[in-house]
């Protein structure tokens, strides 16, 4: 990424929070919305703009589960492991996904298509067990459905590349 471009973008984000105390987390949220993760180059620029030591920025990024230091896959698969989902077989669904995608939670598939992660409760326990892919929520997922759900996404991407 070009440093000048980053600087301009980060400055825009930071300016909207200028003068507000405790803005670091909110700025990081916007940066992650923009880039999908918090790249190191961006943190370096941010540190200059906000006049906050890089260590402080990393302290915050690494403490909160929400912030990422590596780029996410094209599709993020979040498997809910809240209590209700756990009781209704969330672990089985996760195992099946690990098996199908050959990754562990927190990892991205080699082709960069899928990022698998475990979340603690998506707040729709009535639908347990729940898997979220991108913004779409799948409720009442059964082990045998997992393959079909994943295929929709990989086909979708193949079709696009072909086109």
């Amino acid at each position: 990424m070009d440093k000048a471009v980053i600087e301009q973008e980060v400055r825009e984000i930071a300016d909207s929070w200028k003068g507000k105390e405790g803005n670091l987390i909110m700025v990081l949220h916007q940066i992650q919305n923009r880039y999908g993760y918090v790249p190191r180059e961006v943190s370096l620029v941010l540190s200059e703009i906000l006049d906050v030591p890089l260590a402080r920025i990393y302290e915050v990024i690494t403490f909160y589960h929400f912030f990422r230091l590596t780029p996410p896959g094209k599709h993020t698969i979040s498997v809910c492991m809240g209590t209700a989902c756990y009781l209704k077989g969330g672990a089985e669904i996760l195992g099946e996904l690990e098996h199908l995608l050959c990754v562990k939670p927190g990892e991205t598939t080699k082709d960069g298509q899928f990022h698998l992660e475990v979340v603690r409760c998506l707040g729709c326990c009535g639908l347990a067990p729940v898997v979220k892919i991108g913004e779409k929520v799948y409720g009442g997922v059964k082990k045998k459905d997992v393959g079909d759900i994943i295929t929709q996404y990989s086909e979708d991407s193949e079709a696009k590349t072909a086109a």
Partner: peptide
């Protein structure tokens, strides 16, 4: 906004988080 930390539901941790700290 929170950022995915359960402990931030605790009052003093929540305050630290609003202040932009861990």
């Amino acid at each position: 906004l929170g950022a995915g930390a359960f402990v931030c539901g605790e009052e003093t941790a929540l305050i630290a988080s609003i202040e932009g700290k861990r």
